[in-house]
Design a protein around this nucleic acid. Structure first.
Lengths: 148, 148
DNA sequence: CCTAACTATTAGGCTTCCTAAGTATGAACG
DNA sequence: CGTTCATACTTAGGAAGCCTAATAGTTAGG
């Protein structure tokens, strides 16, 4: 019985990785399920915190097209969690800024989500947590390369 | 300066883990973007391969409610990739079975996706791939606990 | 100036998810 | 048997999120 060729090992890892991706979506859906802010909305608000962000920047961060970001922003604006202002440097652009309510909503939602995940992580043993911890930067790297 | 309390370390890990989840969605969206079958549709078809599956089982696997699964199934049926039959053991139930075209579509889509991911994994060094590899079973465990 | 590039919004459409309500079958019990 | 309750699925209606194409306004470069 021959050793597996390197290429096959990569494909196998890819297969397992895809499963993990699928599961991530699942977990995230559960996390979003009964939250007042979706994961994406939380991301928008976070960008709107310090000095705000432009619509295009938010779209890029979310990984969606500009009109989709506009939609989310309008929704959050109607909810009173952020406001839109003309950018002083470039009148074509719009700066998106969190309101005090928005800031409070981020704090609350962030805390709740972290506690929820932490409770799950607490059921793991230390080796398992270390494995996750070691993999996270690699996830980040993969994501960056996909975004590029 | 005190060492961090264990609970804080967990919260920090949770925060990073959430980021990774968010990134996973991003990667998966890219993967789905120009594919003829979405990730979810591919999952449905895979369950329909050997002996088929019932609608409720498919819904559970996808992590959605039954009507949402029905919708996907109908779409795939219209595309000729699967068919529905009455379950011989229980006439209330419906068995979902892949057609030959469905089987071929799974093979093709699976191969394409694996190759796509493998190409990304190929840009990592061995330590990074090992880190991913070690984390995958833990992902699986987390997912199972969330599903339960 | 005038044209080309950029930023954001609007309009229209598709997919996917949900809840609620309806149909049909199965199972339990008197 | 027949009533009743539970189970399996479908249908209907609606919300959220994403997209492309078209539009309006602003900036920047010949």
């Amino acid at each position: 019985m021959n050793a597996e060729r390197p290429a096959d090992a990569l494909i196998d890892l890819a297969q397992e990785f895809r499963n993990a991706l699928r599961q991530s979506v699942f977990v995230l859906r559960r996390l979003d399920a009964h939250a007042e802010l979706s994961s994406a909305q939380l991301s928008v608000l976070k960008m709107a915190l310090d000095g705000g962000a432009r619509v295009g920047e938010i779209a890029r961060d979310l990984g969606v097209k500009v009109p989709s970001a506009t939609e989310q922003i309008i929704r959050l604006e109607r909810a009173g969690l952020l406001r839109r202002e003309a950018d002083p440097d470039d009148s074509r652009a719009v700066r998106v800024l969190a309101t005090a309510e928005g800031r409070a909503a981020v704090d609350l939602a962030d805390r709740r989500r972290n506690e929820h995940i932490a409770a799950i992580l607490a059921t793991l043993d230390q080796n398992e947590r270390d494995a996750i911890s070691a993999a996270l930067p690699v996830f980040h790297k993969i994501n960056s390369s996909v975004r590029a």
